[in-house]
Amino acid sequence: MTRKKRSSRRDNKWNQMRDGLTNLSTAKGVEARETVPDIACGKCKNFSESPYASDGRGSCSVVKTGSDFTVDPPLILLEGDTGMMCMFNMDAAKCSHFDLMDIIDTDGNECADPQFRRAQRQMEKAMS
């Protein structure tokens, strides 16, 4: 009989989000970093770039923490008071809430507008 694992006091949404924050930038190699899928979170109206970091992370204003696009079928949660953390080049093909932006601003000179700004070099390439 295996020992029953107690659920951690800290096993909550904040923990998940914190993990999201620290694990997002673990892309391996040049190829994974350079790829921007056709349907990518960064091209979606609901993606908001983090005002804190321009490493490509952001959060979703619709899909909430705990969602997972990598499982089949994708797990999409719409309840909760924290948005899912995502990267600009995360594949959103399986997201039923993807909504293509009208304006994507890739101009790095002007100031941060999380709703429109995609300041990554890769996004600039992908949009041109």
Binding site: S25, G29, V30, R33, A53, S54, D55, G56, Q122
Partner: peptide, 27 residues
């Protein structure tokens, strides 16, 4: 900070040429 490192990787216009080589070094 990893996020600053990644930001450098993503940054426009500051990579020494040739860019491919710099990207590999940065990665």
């Amino acid at each position: 900070a990893s996020m600053i490192n990644e930001e450098i990787y993503n940054e426009q216009g500051i990579l020494p040429q040739p860019e491919e080589k710099s990207l590999e070094r940065l990665a």
